[in-house]
Simulated scan of single mutants.
Amino acid sequence: MPRLFRRRRFSPFRLFARLLLAVAGAWSAGFLIYLAAVFMAAPPNPLPLADGIVVLTGGDDRIREALKLLAAHEAPLLLISGAGKGTYLGDFTQDDSSAATRYASAITVGHMATTTHANGTETANWARAHHMHSLIVVTADYHMPRALVEIGRALPGVRLIPDPVRPPAMRDHLAWPTLRMLAGEYSKYLVVRAGLGSLFSTGSSGDY
């Protein structure tokens, strides 16, 4: 009697292809959730008072927002993290020179961090030195999820209050270079969530 069903021979290639499709599908679904979270992100209203503000370098709008919060007395101290060696307050605040000059004594420019992982360490050292229990975090909206994970791991027990800033490239429509950048940022976020943020141990200033 002929067999109605034949057992398929094991194929490593077919198994690999299925695993690849499953991973790609999971990544794509997660990326869509990440995009939705980024575009819906907004700071608490009203923004609660905090012990300090940290702004991660990478865009002029971020510095402007952080200075605005400092001027509004949302927190008494401000850290500009990731400024890079040889960079000073005046290099970031050409359009806000009066505010920067007025509050210069309350502003610390961090020169050590060149990656988001190092931003977390630099922020933690500064916050601990000032005995902070709450911190407003200012960075781009697409960068905020990864920044919160890195800072939160370096500074457990401190309340982090996100104040996301939307960069100009994301205000109108998503061009291909912007979408590619968002895909790269989401992939970095997954690496950080897996506890491998130290892999990004070197880089230039910005959202590395």
Rank of each mutant, 00 (worst) to 15 (best):
E74Q: 14
G52D: 09
A127V: 01
A24S: 15
W176L: 15
L199F: 04
A71Q: 13
W176E: 14
I136R: 06
Y208L: 07
H73P: 07
T115D: 02
T115S: 05
R159N: 15
A140Q: 14
T93W: 11
H143S: 03
V192K: 02
F92H: 04
G58A: 04
A113H: 01
L15A: 14
A154R: 05
L47R: 07
G25C: 06
F200M: 00
I80W: 09
L20V: 05
M144D: 01
A41L: 09
W27A: 03
I151N: 00
L77T: 09
S201L: 02
K85Y: 14
W27D: 03
R153Y: 03
R62D: 03
R180G: 08
T116K: 00
P167V: 09
P162C: 05
K188Y: 00
M112I: 01
Y189C: 02
A154S: 13
T116C: 00
L35S: 04
L155V: 06
D61V: 07
F200C: 00
I33H: 11
R6Q: 11
V23T: 11
T87G: 02
H130Y: 14
R9M: 08
L77G: 04
L196A: 02
Y142R: 04
E122R: 02
A100H: 07
N119E: 04
G195C: 00
L15N: 10
I151Y: 01
R6V: 06
P168I: 04
N125W: 07
L67V: 04
S204C: 11
S205N: 14
Y103T: 03
A106M: 11
T101R: 14
G157P: 12
G203L: 03
L179G: 12
W176P: 10
T123H: 05
T139G: 01
P44I: 09
H131R: 10
A17M: 13
D91M: 06
R7Y: 07
G195V: 00
R14F: 13
V165K: 03
L155I: 12
P12M: 09
G152E: 09
P162S: 11
D141S: 15
A41N: 09
A194M: 00
P156R: 09
L89I: 06
G30F: 11
D141H: 15
N125V: 13
L21P: 07
R171Q: 15
A22F: 13
H173P: 07
L70D: 08
I80M: 12
L199Y: 03
N125K: 13
F5R: 12
N45E: 15
L190S: 03
A66H: 04
D60I: 12
A100T: 04
A17W: 13
F39K: 08
A147S: 12
G157F: 13
